[in-house]
């Protein structure tokens, strides 16, 4: 049974926009990070699917995905470190509580 490529792309587009929506609406910074992961993983799905269906003779998309996974881990580590620091200073990780600077 063959699943056409557009079905995979549907999943990745829904994931991407769910991530964007979540990033904008969530107040908890850990939830915002999770939304970012959704965005990055939708990109990964895109790369893998394009590679598998369109250009199966080369591994370019797969390699790109591996690099994205690695960099995303580093990014998350830095973000979590900063969020922990935020927690130490205001005892909360809600985006509503970091609003000393505005306008």
């Amino acid at each position: 049974m063959d699943i056409p490529m557009s079905f995979y792309l549907l999943v990745s587009f829904v994931m991407f926009f769910a991530g964007v929506f979540g990033f904008i609406t969530r107040k908890n910074m850990i939830a915002m990070l999770m939304s970012l992961e959704l965005i990055l993983n939708s990109v990964n799905i895109n790369f893998v699917v394009f590679n598998r269906f369109l250009f199966p003779e080369q591994m370019e998309g797969m390699f790109f995905t591996l690099f994205i996974i690695g960099v995303a881990a580093a990014e998350t580590a830095v973000a979590i470190a900063i969020i922990i620091n935020v927690f130490r200073s205001v005892n909360n990780i809600s985006a509503d509580d970091i609003q000393k600077m505005k306008y």
Partner: peptide, 30 residues
């Protein structure tokens, strides 16, 4: 406090913007 706040804002925005950019790159690839 201000430096921490700036860091939190910057790390989230930086990751979000590179996510947008990567999505564009993946479409270019396709």
């Amino acid at each position: 406090d201000e430096s921490i706040e700036a860091g939190a804002k910057f790390v989230l925005i930086a990751a979000f913007s590179s996510g947008m950019m990567l999505f564009g790159i993946s479409l270019f690839y396709g």
